[in-house]
């Protein structure tokens, strides 16, 4: 694993009105890594992702990507910089076709990269079969594939994946996680938010555990898998 730091969050604070959602989160992602953020509901995982994409504005702290400060940037510029976000709940454009969704993913590109489109269709052949179908008619798992495929269309350097396993049949979760590995192999750095801690840690190089707006634990995946705290809180102790 190369040790070049691609992305840093320092002391990030975000609040919704008077309610603090993030109370000083710091983390680092190296180029080429898969890093996962674990945590219970309401821990601040999605808030972290939305703040990176600038859909939410930070109260204080800094987010830097390749040396550029993101916190004062409008959301659409973040995409241009090379960060693509596949949001929680998929958020595909339901009344547009699968292909129209993918092409919108390439909105920042002056020309649609047909190689990327090919690659997405190879990873998720279902999308190609259904490319003329409205995205809203796809199953949850297929919509998740579409959301991930769409976010790859901008040829990002770093991909933010927010709960790709949420509400999806286990067999599709497995397929999707395999493709995340493939995405990473192609050189895309991945920041993955998950509630499914076991699956996420199997996939990731390192992880952070978020607890009510603070980083409670961090370490390599092996360390986290072995830690009592993670075992108890997320892996249901010893009995699976």
């Amino acid at each position: 694993m190369s040790s070049e730091v691609l992305f840093t969050i320092e002391d990030l604070e975000v609040s919704y009105g008077s309610i603090a959602a993030l109370k000083g989160v710091s983390l680092q992602v190296h180029k080429g890594e898969i890093v996962t953020i674990l945590g219970a509901n309401g821990a601040g995982k999605t808030t972290t992702m939305r703040t990176i994409s600038q859909l939410l504005k930070a109260k204080s702290g800094s987010i830097r990507f390749k040396g550029e400060e993101l916190t004062k940037m409008p959301a659409h510029k973040v995409v241009k910089l090379g960060i693509s976000h596949s949001p929680e709940g998929r958020r595909v454009f339901g009344v547009l076709t699968v292909e129209e969704n993918l092409l919108l993913g390439a909105y920042t590109q002056s020309k649609v990269n047909t190689k990327t489109l090919r690659w997405v269709y190879e990873m998720f052949p279902r999308l190609e079969e259904r490319r003329k179908q409205l995205a809203g008619t796809l199953s949850g798992g297929e919509q998740q594939m579409l959301a991930i495929g769409r976010s790859l269309m901008s040829d990002p350097e770093m991909l933010l994946l927010d709960e790709p396993s949420l509400g999806i049949a286990p067999i599709l979760v497995k397929a999707i996680f395999e493709q995340i590995k493939e995405i990473s192999r192609q050189g895309v750095t991945v920041l993955l938010v998950e509630q499914n801690a076991k699956a996420a840690l199997k996939l990731a190089d390192r992880g952070y555990v978020l607890d009510v707006g603070r980083i409670a634990l961090e370490g390599t995946s092996a360390e986290l898998l072995a830690s009592d705290k993670v075992q108890e809180a997320y892996l249901g102790k010893k009995h699976e």
């Binding site: 994409s53 600038q54 859909l55 409008p74 959301a75 659409h76 510029k77 995409v79 241009k80 693509s84 976000h85 949001p87 958020r91 595909v92 454009f93 339901g94 009344v95 547009l96 919108l104 993913g105 909105y107 920042t108 769409r150 976010s151 901008s154």
Partner: peptide
């Protein structure tokens, strides 16, 4: 359809 999702595509809403 979805302003936030549009922003994530790099669209200046």
């Amino acid at each position: 359809i979805d302003q936030d999702a549009a922003r994530l595509m790099g669209i200046n809403v």
